[in-house]
């Protein structure tokens, strides 16, 4: 009898598989959307359409990766869109107006983003202020700094930079991707490795599961929480660099509301907003779902762009409800 009580039993492994359920739902949704698109529109079912989704959303993917780290700890970062805008602005003004080399500008931009994240992380942890309000202040600050630099769009004409932006990396089957896609995928791989194979990554999950427990288990909670916001700041800055590669300009009104897209991608990707559960693969799928919605709407032609927001809102609603049901059943 004793071993009956203590063996987790076959149901445990079944429930273990339930962890992948949200990601599988998202994957299924993606496949369904792609199938419907392929049946409805002629040119839809080509590899390049998928690759274009990556090309058009590489920056969002990077930003969403950073957001995944934050949300996994149970926090939230509202400053990402503003940091993206600030990064495009700093990049553009330094290269166009001051003639800096991209080799100096890009590291500086990444440093600014990380530093901003670091400061926000410290405020959240040491002064115990809600992440929501701290990153809101960060958002105001970053947007405000954009306008201090300039209120108009600044285009980027630096030769090396535009060359990189226009490079198409050929793939078999006459398909291609941009440099941004390669960078974004590299970021995803590094981040996935960090989350799964390093102590920092596991601590992120532990804090999301129960911060109190993580503290009592002797895990470095302070360091991890601050690191997470720093990573998000870094990813936002990198996202900004990719955004400036995509548009070849810097503008203070860039990436308005991107924080919402990033949060939506993470949630649709199956990461619990309360933290502790989710995968980077899900975030990638979430970004693809958002991108595919845009693609389908542009293929449809008669549907206007605002349907994107409505669909994203509906998906958010469904997935949040799903999350709630799953967590309710667990407890």
């Amino acid at each position: 009898m004793s071993s009956d009580v203590l063996t987790a039993g076959p149901s445990a492994s079944l429930r273990g598989r339930q962890r992948y359920l949200p990601v599988m739902v998202t994957a299924g949704l993606l496949v369904a959307m792609f199938t419907v698109g392929g049946l409805r529109y002629e040119a839809f079912a080509s590899g390049q359409v998928v690759l274009n989704v990556f090309i058009d959303n590489a920056f969002l993917l990077v930003v969403a990766v950073g957001m995944t780290f934050v949300i996994l700890t149970g926090g939230i970062d509202l400053s990402v869109g503003a940091v993206v805008a600030l990064s495009t602005m700093v990049t553009a003004t330094l290269m166009t107006d001051h003639g800096w080399s991209p080799l100096a500008v890009v590291p500086l931009v990444l440093l600014i983003g990380s530093a901003l994240g670091l400061v926000m992380g410290c405020m959240i942890h040491y002064f115990d202020i809600q992440p929501f309000i701290v990153t809101l202040a960060g958002m105001f600050l970053a947007r405000g700094l954009c306008y201090v630099i300039g209120t108009d769009s600044i285009s980027i004409t630096e030769e090396g930079y535009t060359a990189v932006a226009q490079t198409q990396i050929a793939l078999p089957g006459e398909m291609y991707v941009s440099v941004s896609v390669v960078i974004a995928l590299a970021v995803v791989l590094v981040a996935a490795y960090m989350l799964h194979y390093t102590r920092l990554g596991r601590n992120v999950y532990a804090i999301g599961g129960s911060e109190q427990s993580a503290l009592l288990m002797g895990l470095p909670v302070a360091r991890t929480k601050i690191a997470v916001y720093t990573i998000s700041g870094f990813c936002s800055a990198l996202g900004g660099v990719l955004f400036s590669l995509y548009t070849l300009s810097g503008y203070g009104l860039n990436a308005l509301g991107m924080e919402l897209d990033a949060i939506a991608a993470v949630v649709i990707g199956g990461t619990l907003l309360t933290g502790g559960s989710g995968y980077l693969l899900g975030t990638v799928l979430g970004v693809l779902v958002l991108g595919l919605i845009q693609t389908i709407i542009s293929f449809e032609g008669t549907l206007s762009s605002w349907w994107t927001k409505i669909f994203i809102g509906l998906l958010l609603f469904v997935f949040i409800l799903l999350q709630r049901l799953i967590s309710a059943r667990r407890s």
């Binding site: 927001k309 994203i312 609603f317």
Partner: peptide, 14 residues
């Protein structure tokens, strides 16, 4: 309320 924040803008434009 985030849900309505996102979808509401679309609804207004609709």
């Amino acid at each position: 309320t985030l849900i309505l924040m996102v979808a509401g803008r679309g609804l207004a434009q609709l």
